[in-house]
Design a protein around this nucleic acid. Structure first.
Lengths: 271, 271
DNA sequence: CGCCCGCTTGAGCCGCTTCAATGCTCGTGG
DNA sequence: CCACGAGCATTGAAGCGGCTCAAGCGGGCG
């Protein structure tokens, strides 16, 4: 129970550098760099920084210095407005690039905070820009990464703009599932690195709604949840629920149960 | 209506350069290119394509060929999910780059449709990538532009995640105001290029809510609106309303008016 | 002219938030 | 060792903000 991201041991100790499991190795893998290029790239990387739980990787407003990649751990990216109201823009996992929101104005737009002790590697943005000029494959990959971030944003915007609470949460869970799977972990059984409050904030919902939807999804056997520990018991049905905009929303458990979820075979079994 | 893919006639034999008001000139201005670089860049630009109202610049799923810049007109970028439900991701105005969402996967994520007859110039993404290697200032500027898009996305996510209807619409109007001003038009008097339905879709609201909020903002003299024609009568107060999360929502006009907007000096003058 | 589309406005409803109470777990210190 | 408090999670009850459904209006265009 609790957070138990472990050090990433699923990646082979590539002879990439002195830094074992350097997240940049993962990140740059799809770029297909030559050995020479990889070493050139590697020379500029600042290896291993530890950011402890609740500590900041950087604050909103700070000047863009390094782009970071996560080696292990998990971070959240968050914006706080004048009124002190927060909005979490995303959660980052190992192998993902952090800090791209600063590229536009050369200042961080957002606070980035570790959800658990996290190791990162960094590269000076200036260096990276220079490298990309010498290494077309790297340039292309950086563009792809930034493009992918834009694509991710579009997904969140669609989620926030059109989806009901249940769909948002189902989509969120499936997204986590995929990302865990991509890192060699189980796609159906994992531990949530963030609180209900953080999930709700990210999804534009109150923490109570998150909790309630989890409970309902548990009731209808799509998931089994216990605190942070979650098991997805029916991936495909969970997926189906996302596009089902017309599907009646989950019946919240009330004194007098008011019918089932309308999915036919997905109904209450308990009281 | 219906699909109206047209032949790609944008490589029309228009005079390849000396395109008056080429949007790329505007776009690349901040890059500070030398004359030589500017001409090098200009050589690759495909000048002048016309996209008529309701026609597509490109469809979701199509392969990334050109990045476009708007010379004149206005476009919307939109995603349609499996269920046929749409979400507008943004509106684009002259001088803005269109199509960056395709850079991640080399396919357009979104449909891009003209709100009015629009002229565009394009550059093959491949060419642009190549150019940026030779022209550091251009590379830097492309990165900035993509970073700015990410920043814009964050703004929309915050809007959709945390703001009330009135705040969303106020922010939307102020955003339009700034963009018109930046193009030499009045920042307080302009014509909305899109329908209520499109505004609502973009902001995660129903068209009725958009219409109602417009009416209420009109009632309290912050704006004067008549169809698409809008005048902002108090920019600063409109701005203040955005951060005021606690401000009671607009009192919808009902048979028995139920008090004022709580802003103190922003109250009804009518019945 | 008549139709369709965009816009406004009303009325009622519902999904989610808010407020509130309770339980659980874990870390800290007596 | 256990008492205690803080933070997280669950659940209930009530209210409300925005959606849906519905009707009517005006203007542009075939």
């Amino acid at each position: 129970m609790g957070t138990d991201f472990r050090l990433n041991v699923h990646r082979a100790p590539l002879p990439q550098s002195n830094c074992r499991n350097c997240g940049f190795a993962t990140w740059s893998l799809p770029a297909g760099l030559s050995l020479r290029e990889a070493s050139q790239f590697n020379d500029r990387i600042v290896h291993q920084r530890l950011v402890r739980r609740d500590e900041y990787l950087h604050h909103a407003g700070s000047v863009l210095a390094l782009l970071n990649v996560i080696n292990s751990g998990c971070l959240k990216t968050r914006i706080t407005n004048d009124g002190g109201h927060e909005q979490i823009m995303g959660f980052s996992m190992p192998g993902e690039l952090v800090g791209m929101d600063a590229i536009g104005a050369h200042r961080q737009l957002s606070d980035t905070v570790a959800l658990e002790d996290s190791h990162l590697c960094g590269i000076a943005y200036h260096d990276l820009e220079q490298l990309t000029r010498d290494i077309p494959a790297l340039q292309h990959h950086l563009h792809r990464t930034m493009g992918a971030e834009i694509a991710r944003n579009y997904g969140v915007m669609r989620l926030l703009g059109t989806m009901r609470a249940e769909q948002r949460i189902s989509l969120f869970l499936l997204n986590l599932s995929k990302r865990f799977a991509a890192r060699g972990y189980s796609d159906v059984h994992f531990s949530l690195p963030m609180t209900r409050h953080e999930i709700g904030n990210y999804l534009g919902l109150s923490l109570e709604t998150v909790s309630r939807v989890f409970s309902r999804l548990d009731d209808i056997q799509l998931i089994a949840i216990n605190g942070r520990d979650i098991e997805i018991r029916n991936l495909t049905q969970l997926q189906q629920r996302i596009s089902n905009a017309q599907a009646p929303p989950l019946p919240y458990r009330t004194k007098s149960g008011t019918g089932n979820a309308g999915q036919g075979h997905a109904r209450f079994f308990g009281i």
